[in-house]
Amino acid sequence: MLPGLFDGTTIPVLQEVLCFAQARHNVLAGNVANADTPNYQVRDLSLENFQQRLKEAISARARQSASVSPGMLSQSDPGDAMRHVRESTKSIQFLDGSDVGIEQQVTEVAKNQFLHNLALAIMNSQFQLLQTAISENV
């Protein structure tokens, strides 16, 4: 469908951000669900890792003077930011061996939601620009 329609925009990049936010939301929801599970370790997707890889992908595409295409991050396997779920022990472990702090997890969910909404808002305005161009109404 119209290859290159979105190439001039940042929509493919925003799509990756949205995918990441959704994947991370799932992981965080799992943390909240397991708040009372003994020996459960908090899981998370690394936002820094994702942003680093996104940055590399964008600059690699810019060097080839090609556009950023959807799904470019998930193709490469090693250290895949979307699937590399790590167990971290950031906070104090409770006596049952788990370390889920419900407040921290809910805050992470809220921050992740903000990232999601931010990407969505920018994407919306990009689509509005395209819409304006297509309908030739100013």
Binding site: F114, A121, S125
Partner: peptide, 17 residues
């Protein structure tokens, strides 16, 4: 305070659209 912070960040999204 967290509610206020979240409201603030949501509001700032309205600048974009």
């Amino acid at each position: 305070i967290m509610e206020v912070t979240k409201n603030l960040s949501e509001r700032s999204l309205r600048i974009i659209g």
